[in-house]
């Protein structure tokens, strides 16, 4: 989706303002929002890709002018309704009027093992990788209406494969409830001068799945 979240290369946002001695959370509601997303995510039945898709599904003007945890709040409210865990009325009132679903909430004592568990997004795939280290590829011109992880600023550009990561869960499918659909994942190196048409000698890298790429 060509949303406001896909902001690489946009201009006009001003300087990067870093805060000295920044706290982890700036308000209690941010901390509670972070924890809610994590805890409900354990039992909600959605994937991380669906979570990202929900957080970026905001109206562009609203997305740009709201904070990170407001994106999460909007995302969680959407996910709860979509998965039948809560109604819009309940979310507004904060009071349950329907039974919802029967789940076992994450207990305090399993938080640490859960957040530190070894996980992996790599999966076995039958298909052999189309590309290998050193191959020159071109990113496709894709403008899907759904969640994708090929940023707009890197579409239609030539790059080189600098790492092969095996097959990973494919967000374009997984975010839509179409299964993990593992596809080969590569780190692709682009010359900044190719991407931006300037004289910069810097390099830009992105981790891109095979369906985003074609042989040059």
């Amino acid at each position: 989706m060509n949303g406001a979240h896909d902001c690489g290369g946009m201009m006009g946002f001003g300087p990067v303002v870093a805060e000295e001695n920044e706290p982890v959370f700036h308000a209690l509601w941010e901390a509670r929002m972070f924890a809610l997303m994590s805890a409900v995510g354990d039992v909600g039945g959605w994937t991380l890709d669906e979570d990202r898709a929900a957080c970026e599904a905001m109206e562009p003007g609203h997305y740009i002018t709201s904070s990170y945890y407001e994106h999460w709040l909007n995302g969680l409210e959407l996910l709860l309704q979509k998965h039948g865990l809560a109604t819009a009325e309940e979310i507004t009132s904060g009071t349950a009027t329907t039974r919802g679903q029967s789940v076992t909430p994450t207990a305090a004592e399993v938080v640490w093992p859960a957040v530190t568990a070894h996980g992996s997004y790599e999966r076995k795939a039958d298909a052999t990788p189309l590309f290998k280290l050193g191959d020159v590829v071109r990113t496709r011109h894709l403008n899907p209406a759904h969640h994708t992880r090929l940023p707009r600023y890197l579409r239609g550009h030539v790059g080189e494969i600098v790492a092969c990561h095996g097959a990973h869960v494919f967000p374009d499918s997984n975010s839509r409830g179409l299964g993990e659909d593992p596809r080969h994942l590569y780190t692709v190196r682009f010359k900044a001068s190719d991407v931006w048409g300037n004289a910069a000698r810097d390099l830009i890298h992105a981790d891109l799945w095979e369906p985003y790429l074609e042989a040059r």
């Binding site: 805890a39 709860l80 309940e90 919802g100």
Partner: peptide, 16 residues
Amino acid sequence: RVKALESLLVEKGYVD
């Protein structure tokens, strides 16, 4: 909004 959401999710038994 977050406070209301937490109340709701606790009431529904989704989070501890």
